[in-house]
Measured scan of single mutants.
Amino acid sequence: EPEARKIVEKLINNGLSPEDVKRWAEKNNNPEVKKAAEEYQKR
Rank of each mutant, 00 (worst) to 15 (best):
E1N: 13
E3A: 12
E3H: 11
A4N: 03
A4P: 09
A4R: 02
A4C: 07
A4V: 06
R5E: 09
R5I: 12
R5T: 10
K6D: 10
K6G: 06
K6H: 10
K6Q: 12
I7D: 00
I7F: 08
V8W: 05
E9Y: 03
E9T: 08
K10P: 02
K10D: 13
K10F: 14
K10Q: 14
L11Q: 03
I12A: 01
I12M: 10
N13F: 09
N13I: 09
N13C: 13
N14S: 15
N14K: 13
N14I: 13
N14M: 15
G15P: 01
L16K: 05
L16D: 02
S17T: 14
E19T: 06
D20M: 08
V21M: 05
V21I: 15
V21R: 00
V21W: 00
V21H: 01
K22M: 15
R23K: 11
R23N: 12
R23W: 07
W24V: 04
A25E: 04
A25M: 01
A25G: 06
E26L: 00
K27I: 14
K27Q: 14
N28Q: 10
N30M: 15
N30D: 08
N30L: 15
N30E: 12
N30G: 02
N30F: 15
N30S: 10
P31N: 08
P31T: 09
E32D: 10
V33H: 01
K34P: 01
K35Y: 06
K35L: 10
A36M: 11
A36P: 00
A36D: 02
A36R: 02
A36W: 11
A36Y: 09
A37F: 06
E38G: 03
E38K: 02
E38Q: 06
E38T: 04
E39R: 03
E39I: 05
E39Q: 07
Y40A: 07
Y40P: 03
Y40E: 05
Y40S: 04
Y40V: 07
Q41S: 07
Q41M: 14
K42E: 12
K42Y: 08
K42A: 11
K42M: 09
R43C: 10
R43D: 13
R43Q: 14
R43N: 14
